[in-house]
Amino acid sequence: MAIPSPYVLRETGSNLVRNIVMTVAAVVTMAVSLTALGGVLIMRQAVNQATVQYQHGVEMIIFMQATASQQEISGMHQELVSMVPSQINRCFYVDKAQAWSEFKQIFSGEPDMVKVMDVQKMPPSFRCVPARAQSVSVLAAKFQQQAGVLDVKYPGQAIKEELARFATLRNVALVVAGGVMLGAIALVVNTIQLAIFARRREVAVMKLVGATNWFIRVPFMLEGLTEGLVGAVIAFAVTYFARNTLASFTGSNPFIPSLPLYVSPHAALLTGVFVVVVGALVGALGSGFAVRRFLSV
């Protein structure tokens, strides 16, 4: 396949402009479909990121207030120790410094957020594995009342809820993405068909004088590819800037109780690359199909 020549680029451009209404329709539906797809991926990342905090069997986190006194913390510590092994299997303590480094890691892409926080504002926490999973809500209610406690999360349950909510959202979004994608493909095929029809005289002359099949097809295929790419870039922009809103649909942040679920720009960028690749592929395949179907050689 030849490198796109000025001819090919000019033809692609004029094809796109000739049928502006259809082109816009194709691009917009492509964008809607890919936004739904991107949204699913963003939410999945948010949920994954949340569940990462609850590895090693941790099922309950007791967040102490950032202002909790040393006595309050060591009191809590002793109480927890006294409950081992009958009620609690094991616990470990995450102090302010550790919490701060964890926070900085998670929010590494968001320097503004890191700037307004500091190590003194971090809540220290105890991360515990209860002896029996069923007793976790009773334990949580008990610790919730104690002095110096900010919040008690027992994410086993929170995560179950989050995962359930995510699953529903995901299924709805995937159905939307799939259905709208079918429409987008139909529109891409249709714009290419119209472009081929509008240029049937040129195509006939090209065949007559011995232009290669690729030379004839490439402008039409580039047109479909462009529609897919532009739709994908719009979808990417929407999901990127709305990523934290999308994340918050699945629940609040079980790690820092006062913060929503969070997706780093880096992770959102990867999603964007994926969405753009899907858009380009769908555009290219749709126009490839149209070219095979309507551009007999």
């Binding site: 020549s5 001819y7 040129e202 002359v205 090209m206 004088v209 011995g210 232009a211 030379f215």
Partner: peptide, 8 residues
């Protein structure tokens, strides 16, 4: 010119 352009 078209006849020449399209055969590169």
């Amino acid at each position: 010119a078209f006849a020449l352009e399209v055969i590169g």
